[in-house]
């Protein structure tokens, strides 16, 4: 029996009868961008209604119009290099440094923990229980140790983003299955070769899961650090705006915080797609385009 590569044909168009059969629910027949847009508009409408009817004081809950206006002002301030641009730049630096340090330390130590017996038996239980602690509670400690400058925020971001990376990396080191490990043993593979050619690639899906969590957590860490430790970042601007009841500005600034988080997350997700083309989750996407 010989196979021909042509047998691996791509997806084939469905017949109309098949298409009808598979599109049972009305929601499946609506393009996704339409349903997403409609739901978004509906939520804006509810927000507008609540603000307009003043169920809540307009000072406490500005409507969509004021918020978008403020967002526009904020954007102008940023583009013209005003104090919000400075805050955005400071917070971005804190988040990126926090993420990079957490990713590096978490990866290196995670490999050591997952690869050594001592790590697996003695260090791992501590990591798991430490991971369960509410890590934001440590923020005042870092402010006391590292002062009110940028450093305490970077440390906070690193600290909070570090755990998902180290825990997932260590778990990923155990992802290779027994038979494949046996195969490497039968090939007289050195520990380093097994690590580089089998264990690390097998761990990548876990490592990326950790990095994606870390991308989100590093923003949380930086903002919490700024709430407690002052400075000139977006967190401090948010805190000040809320104190002066400028809720519309709080919302606008949160949008920009979200942009930082989304960009970082998107970057990690992009790298994951490039590197994990062989993995189940990606394969499903390749084959799932029907």
């Amino acid at each position: 029996m010989t196979f021909k590569p042509e047998e691996l044909a791509g997806p084939v168009e469905m017949s109309d009868a098949e298409a009808l059969w598979y599109s049972g629910k009305w929601i499946d027949r609506v393009p996704q961008w339409v349903s997403v847009t409609v739901l978004g508009l509906a939520m804006l409408g509810i927000w507008w209604l609540i603000a307009e009817l003043e169920f809540v004081s307009r000072i406490l809950l500005p409507g969509p119009a004021e918020t978008f206006e403020e967002l526009w002002d904020t954007t102008k301030n940023i583009v013209s290099g005003g104090h919000i641009a400075e805050g955005l730049w400071i917070t971005t630096q804190e988040v990126v440094w926090g993420f990079l340090l957490a990713a590096f330390a978490g990866f290196v130590l995670g490999v050591v923990v997952g690869e050594t017996r001592l790590g697996k038996r003695a260090v791992m239980p501590y990591l798991v229980s430490f991971n369960a602690l509410p890590k934001v509670a440590f923020a005042p400690v870092f402010v006391a140790w590292f002062g009110f400058g940028v450093n305490s925020k970077i440390v906070m971001a690193t600290f909070i983003a570090f755990f998902p990376v180290i825990v997932d990396t260590a778990a990923g080191m155990l992802a290779a299955d027994d038979d494949t490990l046996m195969l490497f043993k039968s090939m007289e593979s050195s520990r380093w070769q097994t690590l580089r050619k089998l264990k690390l690639p097998s761990a990548l899906p876990f490592i990326f899961a950790g990095l994606k969590t870390a991308a989100v957590f590093s923003v949380v860490g930086a903002v919490v650090g700024e709430y407690l430790g002052g400075g000139h970042g977006l967190g401090e601007l948010i805190r000040f705006s809320a104190q002066t009841l400028r809720i519309d500005r709080v919302f606008a600034l949160i949008v920009y915080l979200g942009v930082i988080g989304l960009l970082l997350f998107g970057l990690v997700a992009w790298a994951e797609r490039k590197l994990l083309f062989w993995h189940k989750s990606e394969i499903f996407e390749i084959q799932g385009t029907g």
Binding site: D177, D179, M182, L183, K197, P201, F277, H279
Partner: peptide, 13 residues
């Protein structure tokens, strides 16, 4: 010595 298991144990990447 050549060996083969029940699973193909190919490296997916």
């Amino acid at each position: 010595i050549g060996i083969m298991f029940q699973q193909p144990t190919l490296l997916p990447w």
